[in-house]
Design a protein around this nucleic acid. Structure first.
Lengths: 113, 113
DNA sequence: ACGAGGTATCGTTCATCTACGATGAACAAA
DNA sequence: TTTGTTCATCGTAGATGAACGATACCTCGT
């Protein structure tokens, strides 16, 4: 019944197929939002950090980037609003993890170009 | 020896393998540039126009988009600077075509996330 | 050389992005 | 309750982006 600091977010990969269209106005807008979200090196670096460390990091991201804490928080917000990342509160800290569905969606949309 | 209006740009697909790295600082920057370039619905629409019509269009792009000619020209410039598109002068008009290598590179980099 | 059509560039305006420090809110431990 | 830690938000300043009209630039016919 212990509740260690180890967070338990980053849930099931959930390999459900994606039935949304790859073209059309909606897809264009969707791809534009996703692409703009990863259109900054810092945000790409954040995504890589989250992929490599399977576990969700939180403030460690700040330590890894040459940016102020508030700036990193902004970037995380952008990624979160794009749906690429999710944050779960784990005590005083926040655990961020990738949203594999969004990443897959991005790959599909880019492949559709 | 005839030189019809049909443009002869959009050259060989050239399936040479890409040996550049998928990660690291350089790749991050590269992906950020490419992603930012497609981070706007109008530019995605332009890319789709260029893929669907095999032939290179030029000012027809302006007719397809609800934007001023100068704005479309700006978007084309962004795509060109990102390496996603190339423009060749064909008489009084300019023929734009996709750069398949850049598109492939983008796919690879996104897949590497 | 000249005019006409097709593009690119310039200059401007308004909005969004990026970065920071400072402040605020939430929570755990004392 | 108070304190310290962690993260989000606010406010700001400078840079970049997006859109347009106007204008300059080419290239081809005449």
């Amino acid at each position: 019944m212990n509740k260690p600091t180890a967070p338990d977010c980053c849930p099931a990969p959930s390999a459900a197929p994606d039935l949304r269209p790859v073209e059309g106005r909606g897809a264009d807008e969707e791809l534009a939002v996703l692409a703009k979200a990863i259109g900054h090196p810092a945000r790409i670096q954040i995504l890589r950090l989250l992929t490599h460390r399977t576990a969700c990091v939180c403030g460690d991201i700040v330590d890894e980037l040459p940016l102020a804490q508030s700036t990193v928080s902004q970037h995380l917000k952008v990624l979160k609003e794009a749906g690429l990342v999710r944050g779960e509160v784990d005590g005083p800290r926040v655990c961020y993890c990738l949203e594999p569905r969004a990443l897959r969606r991005l790959r599909v949309l880019v492949a559709g170009l």
